[in-house]
Simulated assay, not measured.
Amino acid sequence: MPLAAIVLAAIAVTFEQLIEWRYGPMGIIGFIALAIGIKARNTAFGGIGAIILVMLLAQSG
Rank of each mutant, 00 (worst) to 15 (best):
T14M: 14
A12F: 10
A4K: 07
V7M: 07
G46R: 01
I51D: 05
P25Q: 13
L8R: 12
S60D: 08
F31M: 11
G24F: 00
Q59V: 13
L34G: 14
A50R: 00
A4Y: 04
I6V: 06
I52P: 01
P25A: 14
M1E: 08
T14A: 14
L53V: 01
G49I: 10
A44K: 07
A4W: 05
F45D: 03
A50P: 03
G47H: 01
R41A: 13
F45R: 07
I29Y: 08
G27Y: 07
A58I: 14
I48G: 05
A58C: 09
G47R: 03
W21T: 15
I48Y: 06
R22V: 06
E20V: 03
N42S: 15
A9Q: 10
L57R: 01
I38L: 14
I36D: 07
L18F: 13
L8M: 06
G24C: 02
I6K: 09
S60M: 05
K39S: 13
Q59T: 14
I19Q: 05
I6R: 02
V54P: 00
G49H: 08
V54D: 01
E20C: 04
G24L: 01
I51F: 06
E16A: 13
F45V: 15
L3V: 11
L18W: 12
I51Y: 02
M1S: 13
G37P: 12
I38C: 06
A44E: 07
V7N: 03
A35N: 12
A33S: 11
G61V: 14
A4G: 05
E16H: 00
G24K: 01
E20L: 04
F31A: 15
A44N: 05
R41F: 15
E16I: 12
G49P: 09
G30E: 00
A35F: 13
I32T: 15
L53E: 00
Q59Y: 13
M1L: 10
T43A: 10
I6A: 12
A35S: 15
N42E: 09
L53Y: 00
I28N: 02
L34K: 15
A33Y: 02
M55V: 13
A33R: 03
I52C: 06
L57K: 08
I29E: 05
L53I: 08
A40V: 09
G61A: 10
T14E: 08
G37L: 04
